[in-house]
């Protein structure tokens, strides 16, 4: 009876697990890679896979994933390969439970490279590449220049693309500005679209700390990678507040070592010690004086 009961529980839980399907909206699932998967994209994808995915999913086709609950599926497995390219892309972006979201860590292009790498383990796979959009055809090889407009307090980016030999402004492209910090990139202002002259002006906060001379390393990125490809630029501009705070060990404190001890403590201690020894020395000198006086009387 007990055995049946346990069996019933197992069946119930396995049903529940299978019921927790990761549903992807049809629009997201229909998304296609903007570029064709080639050996070079697979190679680039492999490097990204090894750095970000391998620790849990293991090597594709070797079924050596880490034993989590649920076990991360193998990249070459039927279950994984049953996803459309768009569904894979969506799941990489969203994450669920122990599977982290790669929205802020990997670019869309890098995600497609990883998918390209995983598809390399499916001999039946035939890729459908997204049709290039009109904007994409119009503007490739976009280059961005960053500048600091001191008068308006804005950081200005100008977007140009090379068409043949002539550089043209890129209008209507969405760009994001980030300030590089020690552990990540801090978004500054909102995403903005370039005007007809290809210019974008970001409002820069007046109180963002820079380095000792106020320099901040800025990164500007085009958000629509499908239309424009990967385009970003970095520049170090003196837009921040010069920050040169003293080390936290600079002030003197009662931290057990003489080098750190407060001056008043060193003085008070020395005074106490000198007073004590001085008193002893005085007492000894008095005893000596008494002894001398005694020996004179005897004479």
């Amino acid at each position: 009876m007990k055995r049946y009961f346990i069996l019933l529980i197992i069946v119930r839980f396995s049903l529940q697990l299978s019921a927790q399907e990761w549903v992807v909206a049809p629009a997201d699932a229909a998304l296609k890679s903007p570029f064709a998967f080639t050996d070079s994209t697979r190679k680039a994808g492999e490097a990204i896979y090894v750095a970000n995915c391998k620790s849990c999913h293991g090597d594709p086709g070797k079924n050596n994933a880490i034993q989590l609950v649920p076990i991360p599926p193998d990249a070459a497995s039927v279950k994984m390969q049953a996803n459309t390219d768009g569904a894979m892309h969506y799941k990489l972006i969203q994450g669920r439970g122990p599977m982290p979201s790669f929205k802020n860590t990997l670019s869309s292009t890098d995600l497609w490279r990883v998918i390209s790498f995983m598809r390399g383990y499916n001999p039946k796979y035939v890729q459908e590449v997204a049709l290039p959009t009109i904007a994409g055809a119009a503007a490739q090889n976009v280059s961005i220049k960053l500048d600091w407009n001191k008068a308006s307090g804005q950081v200005e980016a100008s977007l140009t693309s090379l068409k043949g030999q002539v550089s043209q402004p890129v209008a209507g492209a969405e760009v994001k500005l980030f300030a590089k910090r020690y552990f990540g990139n801090l978004p500054v202002d909102e995403a903005r679209k370039s005007d007809a002259a290809g210019k974008v002006a970001f409002n820069f906060p007046k109180d963002l700390p820079g380095d000792s001379i106020g320099n901040v390393q800025l990164i500007v990125k085009l958000t629509d990678e499908v239309a424009y490809g990967e385009a970003s630029a970095e520049a170090t501009l003196a837009v921040g507040v010069p920050t040169n705070r003293p080390a936290l060990t600079a002030p003197r404190a009662m931290w057990g070592v003489l080098a750190k001890a407060p001056i008043w403590l060193i003085f008070a201690y020395l005074l106490a010690v000198l007073t004590a020894w001085g008193f002893i020395a005085y007492v000894i000198s008095q005893i000596k004086a008494i002894y001398r006086a005694g020996s004179k009387e005897q004479l």
């Binding site: 910090r181 020690y182 552990f183 109180d207 700390p209």
Partner: peptide, 9 residues
């Protein structure tokens, strides 16, 4: 993060 950079990740 770093208080000197006023940012946390």
């Amino acid at each position: 993060g770093d208080e000197n950079q006023d940012s946390v990740t």
